[in-house]
Design a protein around this nucleic acid. Structure first.
Length: 110
DNA sequence: AGATTGACCGTGT
DNA sequence: GACACGGCCAATC
């Protein structure tokens, strides 16, 4: 088995990002931790940048630890990313996501 | 196999 | 609150 073109890490990250509920956002560090590699926030970002399945992996729901939107290889980049989040119900604080109201809580999960 | 890069994070000033 | 430096992980050249 395992004819996947991707590594286990990538698949895990994709699964975690795909499990983020609409209207909420998670930080790279959080995704990394949920993926089983705490501290690998950078690696998560690398995976996302190489990710090409926006419909399967809503990378726009992943933001920086401060709620800052960084990177988005589609649309107009940050502009499209912000627009998508706002449309889904995520609250914004200027050009950053309001983590105090829209950060995802895996354990609580509403 | 080795070195470099990259959509990050935390701390210090 | 903003800028600077270093450290950590994985993928890619």
């Amino acid at each position: 088995m395992k004819n996947s073109t991707q590594t286990n890490f990538q698949k895990t990250v994709h699964a975690v990002v795909a499990s983020i509920p609409k209207g909420s956002v998670a930080t790279y560090g959080q995704v990394a931790e949920l993926a089983g590699r705490p501290g690998a926030a950078r690696a998560v970002g690398s995976v996302m940048s190489h990710n090409q399945d926006t419909k399967a992996t809503p990378c726009h729901r992943v933001v920086g630890s401060t709620g800052a939107l960084s990177g988005y290889a589609y649309g107009d980049g940050i502009t499209t990313k912000k627009k998508l989040l706002v449309k889904e119900g995520v609250q914004f604080r200027g050009e950053k996501v309001d983590l105090k109201t829209s950060q995802w809580h895996p354990k609580v999960s509403r």
